[in-house]
């Protein structure tokens, strides 16, 4: 038996490029050389109103259109409100909801089912939560997951050790299940870090940073892939537009540094 165990531990990934999870946002896939490496846990981080929720939703809708089961776990906003935001999209197809390709679950409902009501979770409760999310992903055969936002979950974890524990275990579980995940993270514009607690960013496989950039009085929405394990990628800043046909991106001009 130990032999079998060993061979599993040391089994190498298949040769060549890791299988990609196409975001369906063309320019972002080009930036990522084909998409997010499957199974990665990616932090989508930025200050408020930078387009994190919209971009994450689009990632799921495209996945559902490709035939993958997609799950949005909403922590702060009600699912109905998010759904209303999807309707104007020209590529959105309501049958994705009926066919169970695109699923919305409110995190408070999960807390309630698990009996998590305290303002601070214990390590055991973190395990409970991670397992519950894992079970849902497994049961519904979810290939793409968004948690919006993971920062709100972290509020209930309080300490760095617990946040590290939560993200590590969750990332491991999701990756084992072959699920590519976006964890939305909220930061203040002034933050030097990519995540509120500073630990999420070190553990995540990838970081997509969204921001507002002011240039001579004009405010631009920007997106930058800061890190992505398992692929080469551009680290340049892009300017973003949220449109009825989805997120559009163009390179940010440098203008000789003015």
């Amino acid at each position: 038996m130990p032999e079998q165990k060993q061979s599993k531990v040391f089994s190498l990934p298949k040769k060549g490029q890791r299988n990609r999870c196409k975001t369906g946002i063309d320019t972002l896939d080009a930036i990522l050389n084909g998409g997010i490496p499957r199974g990665n846990t990616v932090l989508v981080t930025g200050s408020c109103g930078t387009g994190k929720t919209t971009t994450s939703l689009e990632f799921l809708v495209h996945g559902a259109l490709y035939g993958e089961n997609c799950l949005f776990i909403s922590v702060t906003e009600a699912s109905e409100k998010l759904l209303a935001n999807l309707i104007p999209y020209e590529f959105f197809d309501e049958s994705l909801l009926k066919r169970g390709k695109l699923i919305f679950i409110d995190m408070p409902a999960i807390y309630e089912r698990l009996g998590l009501q305290k303002s601070e979770f214990s390590f055991e409760e973190i395990d409970l939560l991670v397992n519950a999310i894992g079970d849902i992903v497994k049961e519904l055969k979810i290939k793409r997951l968004v948690i919006d936002s993971v920062t709100s979950v972290c509020f209930q974890l309080k300490t760095e050790e617990k946040i590290r524990d939560f993200i590590l275990k969750l990332g491991k579980k999701l990756s084992d299940l072959g699920c590519t995940s976006l964890l939305v993270s909220e930061i203040l514009p002034s933050d030097a870090r990519y995540s509120t607690y500073g630990v999420e960013e070190a553990i995540a496989d990838g970081i997509i940073l969204m921001g507002n950039y002011e240039r001579r009085g004009d405010l631009l929405r920007t997106l930058q892939v800061v890190k992505m394990r398992g692929t080469t990628h551009s680290r340049a800043k892009y300017v973003l537009d949220l449109t009825p046909i989805g997120v559009l991106l163009v390179p940010m001009l440098k203008g000789g540094g003015d």
Binding site: R215, G217, L220, I245
Partner: peptide
């Protein structure tokens, strides 16, 4: 496009039209 200084936004609108 709000202002002629928003050159990226010009590119974004052109991109939008090309797709549309």
């Amino acid at each position: 496009v709000e202002s002629p200084t928003m050159l990226e936004n010009i590119m974004l609108k052109v991109e939008f039209l090309l797709r549309k």
